[in-house]
Design a protein around this nucleic acid. Sequence first.
DNA 1: CTTATCATGTAACAGGTTACATGATTCT
DNA 2: AGAATCATGTAACCTGTTACATGATAAG
Lengths: 174, 174
Amino acid sequence: MQAKDVILGLLKKKKMSGYDIKKRFEEEFSYFFDSSYGSVYPTLKKLEENDLIKKETIIQEGKPNKHIFSITEKGEKLFEMYLHSEVKRDNIRSDTCMRLYFGEFMDVRKQISLIDNAILQNKKTINKLKQMYVQHNEQMSNTQKISLQIGIEHQRSQAKVLLEGKQKLVNELD
Amino acid sequence: MQAKDVILGLLKKKKMSGYDIKKRFEEEFSYFFDSSYGSVYPTLKKLEENDLIKKETIIQEGKPNKHIFSITEKGEKLFEMYLHSEVKRDNIRSDTCMRLYFGEFMDVRKQISLIDNAILQNKKTINKLKQMYVQHNEQMSNTQKISLQIGIEHQRSQAKVLLEGKQKLVNELD
DNA sequence: CTTATCATGTAACAGGTTACATGATTCT
DNA sequence: AGAATCATGTAACCTGTTACATGATAAG
């Protein structure tokens, strides 16, 4: 799964601009994908060059013209190929887990503050995702709901483990 | 968190070869980090060039000579800097979630088989991680245990959500 | 007999990030 | 007054992947 597959999928649902796409990444995809503008715009350019998407320009004043992209038939076929390709295994990079792994090189107080921060982040993310669920609930497909639920539960389970772990650290502190 | 930080941390615990390091990535780190040989060996080379680690060669027959790396004082300092740097937020790339997001473009049977496969993977990973816990339990630090627990619970929570979601899909099939 | 393990490394390439460049409008 | 939102894009860079190249030994 790469940026191009995801972008093609989004454009299959609805035509939109690079800016819109990036916004989706930050909102709906935040818990399983991310990519920067420096990846979105060049990818759109390449897709257009290969006739996988097409551009429509909307003239605007005070801001750069808006480029609305829509998927072509050729693009739909490529997206179809992605959907039929082998599912890649999840790829997680957790700096938090890494630091816990090397926790022995920090004093206990630092370990605890690391955990506290992580829990705080978890809670923020949970709120954000829950809100998304409430807001988009009705337009979401079954499988979209499952995917969102995975995100929420992932955060919850992490927060739970962290809190329990913290208790043990605190107890040993006395 | 990059390969170099992790490698430095591992070498701080114990001197070892590139091959050993990669093995650790596959075992202990599998649920929050991964990196290929094509990243490990060049990184070791760079670290050595910068006097952050040093090499010791063990002559072997029938296999390439073994290069055992150990961390230098300069390397320890750099690792210390990593430990004091800002914690990066987790980065997850889940092809499974992505496909669930685009589930509406697949027929329900395909959605279900996607879920079944994902659950199977979850279970395999849970077994592997549990085994790791049993085997290394006594040598593991508190925080290492927390980190491993996060991995296990992450898989469990995902499997749970997927199974519940699948039920709904199956029910709607009738 | 075939698979896994041990053991190193390079070259070509892909993919993505960060920082830069620009600037009006709207919300707080 | 200042932050956020809208809106595009490029250039330099970094990091990492895949595939290749080699080959003995041990285990099943």
